[in-house]
Computed example of a mutant assay.
Amino acid sequence: MAKGWVKAISADRGLRETIRIVGLVDVNLDAARMLAGEFNLGDVVIGSDLEAVLAQTQPDILFDVVVPSARVEVVAAGLRHGCHVLSEKPMATSLEDGHELVRMAAETGKLHAIVQNRRFVPGIRRIRSFIESGAIGDLTSIHCDFFIGAHFGGFREEMEHVLLLDMAIHTFDAARFIADKKPIAVYCREENPRGSWYAHGAAATAIFEMADDVTFTYRGSWCAEGANTSWESEWRIIGTRGTLLWDGADEFRAKKVAGTEGFLRKLTPIKVPAPTDRRRTQGHASVIADFVSAIHDGGKPETAGDDNINSLAMVFAAIESARSRQRVIIE
């Protein structure tokens, strides 16, 4: 994932002019050297001791692209050295650790935010604006399907709750952003289907209760071969006057009620306008740019930890529901 971050910075003119990478830390030094060479990072400091490299380079920002189990230690080190920290998702491997990260950021006066890059794709911004326009009336429900046969190898195939913790967080966060509603409770069933190459929890089905009687449902699997959805999931957004469908790629279809008679009411198509702010639709580059702008302007990034913990809470409530087979209130 570090390569994806460096690629996003290198490909964006504004970020190239703002960010200079001064150090790379990896338990595998050869991997760090290869990354530095691939992107011509020049006289960058390379090491395996995070504290030592931070002390030597004294950076303004630490990009935390480690496995989730190392998150708290790495973020804490960055904050201690006076860095603002931008972390990969998930924010933490427990809600308690998530709260600790929020506390540490507040105590040090530094920003800590999470790369929820999928809320910065054009489709998600487009849906949020469309709902806000009132084109299909008041939002009543959001339904998402995510089915991909993903063969990663590595740590994901050994994780517990791998779909919920490592991937569903994207869809949960995007749904919370689209709905602009507080999550209240969840009922979830988790499974590891026959034929799965994961150790645990490669599939899940969840029903979330959101504020204002909005329902969000999620069906997902990382070991579903034969008919992959988009990585962004397939979406059905229902309002009091119509429905929006998004295939997770380029196809948007929306219709609203246009008649008052008949068993099935007459419908009329609605145009779903494209987003107008291109700077907020570039995935990783947009998250990083939002983070850097907040540092410069003294503001708050959209994916700051004290907000993103609400999406993390959805994940852990779903995990607890799957364990207990009970409806769980989201703290």
Rank of each mutant, 00 (worst) to 15 (best):
A285F: 00
L111S: 02
I136R: 03
E158Y: 10
L264K: 11
R278G: 06
S196V: 08
N308W: 00
G239E: 11
M104G: 03
V67I: 15
G149Q: 13
L139N: 12
P273A: 10
I178W: 04
L267R: 09
E232L: 07
S87I: 08
A202I: 04
G47K: 05
H284M: 04
G98H: 02
K3W: 15
E320M: 07
K7W: 06
A202Q: 01
A254K: 03
R194C: 00
D213C: 04
A106L: 08
S293I: 00
P269C: 02
W235T: 08
D173N: 13
G195D: 06
E190V: 13
W222D: 11
A249L: 11
E251K: 02
E251A: 01
D26Q: 06
R278T: 10
E261Y: 09
R236M: 12
H161Y: 10
A224P: 00
R128S: 14
A274I: 03
A168F: 12
L163H: 00
L54P: 08
T240Q: 04
A202E: 12
R33V: 02
V45Y: 13
I319D: 00
N308K: 00
S10M: 13
L79N: 04
L79G: 09
R128V: 09
G299K: 08
W5T: 14
R33A: 14
V72E: 03
G305R: 01
S196D: 11
A294C: 04
R156H: 15
S48M: 12
A52N: 13
R118K: 11
T140W: 00
A318D: 05
M104C: 01
S286G: 12
S48I: 05
G195Y: 00
D247V: 02
F291Q: 03
H151P: 03
E209L: 07
N310M: 12
G226W: 09
H200A: 11
W231K: 01
L29E: 15
F146G: 12
L79F: 09
S141P: 06
V115I: 14
A105P: 09
K89W: 02
G23Y: 02
D26T: 07
K300W: 11
I329Q: 13
A168H: 09
A52F: 13
I19T: 10
D97Q: 12
H200N: 11
I169N: 03
A174P: 03
H170T: 02
R71N: 15
I9L: 05
R323P: 05
E96P: 00
E51I: 06
D97G: 05
E191M: 14
E73G: 04
Y218W: 12
Q58G: 08
N308V: 08
M159R: 09
I288C: 10
D173E: 15
I270R: 02
K89A: 09
R20L: 06
F120A: 11
S129C: 04
I148A: 06
V6G: 02
V25C: 11
